[in-house]
Amino acid sequence: MNSRVLVLNQDNSPLMVCSVERAFVLVFMNKSELVRTANGHKLHSVTQSFPMPSVIRLNRYVNAPYKGVNLTRQNIFKRDNHECQYCGTKKDLTIDHVVPRARKGADSWTNLVTACKRCNAKKGDYMPEEVNMVLRKKPYKPSYAIFLKDHHNNSTGEWDAFLGHHPQ
């Protein structure tokens, strides 16, 4: 069993992702409550059947330190859905500075985008508008919740209501 469960803090904020086994124990020991089941799936013991958790909420508030998303190459690709932000291709990807380094462009979430090598070379040390290129979406700093969503295999959208939506 390799399914994952979204764990919410008592205030319904996303806290972490854990295994189904760990989530079941938390619910069984009354340390959390079952919020959503995994689309009709069941866990079976010798004599009983239990709904498989997909989302649980802790019964006590846990004071967790702020969890930010590290600015890394892979996280930029993930934020941009592994697509060139100029043409949309998913091949030969690299990182582009929207405001080029030659013009004092920073290494930041709002200045780095995924670009294919062809578009990156075409843009060069120019601003996108100077070479008639348009970004498909504005770069943004993603929230921790967005990255939690990307770290699971929840294709049915059972977590969507708890993780919110990212800007487009």
Rank of each mutant, 00 (worst) to 15 (best):
T110E: 15
P139Q: 05
M1V: 06
P53W: 14
L43P: 01
L93D: 00
D92M: 06
Q74N: 14
N70R: 13
E130F: 03
P14S: 08
M127S: 03
K90H: 15
V98L: 07
E130Y: 05
P14R: 08
P51H: 00
N30M: 06
M127W: 15
V55A: 03
A121C: 06
P51F: 01
S54C: 13
Q85D: 03
S54F: 02
H82L: 03
H152I: 14
V27T: 10
R118H: 09
Y66D: 14
S49I: 10
N132Y: 11
M16V: 02
H152M: 14
I95G: 04
Q10G: 00
R60A: 10
M133K: 08
V99S: 03
V7W: 06
I76G: 03
K141Y: 00
L148C: 06
M29N: 13
R22C: 03
M127L: 15
A115D: 00
N59C: 10
T37K: 11
F77T: 01
P142M: 01
Y61D: 04
L15K: 02
K91I: 11
A38D: 15
Y140V: 12
S32D: 00
T114K: 08
V5I: 07
S108G: 01
I76R: 06
P14Q: 09
R101Y: 14
G164E: 07
N59D: 02
S13P: 01
F77C: 01
F50M: 05
M52H: 08
A64S: 13
Q74R: 14
K104W: 12
A102K: 13
M1A: 12
L148A: 07
N70S: 13
Q48R: 15
V69F: 10
S143F: 04
P100A: 05
V27E: 07
Q10R: 14
P139D: 02
N39S: 12
Q10N: 08
D107T: 14
D11R: 05
L112K: 11
M52Q: 15
H97V: 09
M133F: 07
E158D: 15
L71N: 01
V55W: 05
K67Q: 15
E21W: 05
N75Q: 07
G124E: 11
L43F: 06
W109I: 04
V35H: 09
C84Q: 06
D80M: 05
W109N: 06
N132A: 10
A106S: 15
T47V: 07
E21T: 12
G157H: 09
N30H: 12
M52W: 05
A115Y: 06
H97S: 07
K141P: 03
L135S: 08
H41L: 14
Y61K: 15
L8D: 05
M127R: 15
S155A: 10
R73I: 06
T94G: 08
R60L: 07
R136T: 04
H166T: 10
P14N: 09
C84W: 00
D96N: 10
P14F: 07
A115Q: 01
V55K: 07
P65G: 08
K78N: 09
A38V: 00
S108R: 09
E158V: 12
T72P: 09
V113K: 02
P167D: 10
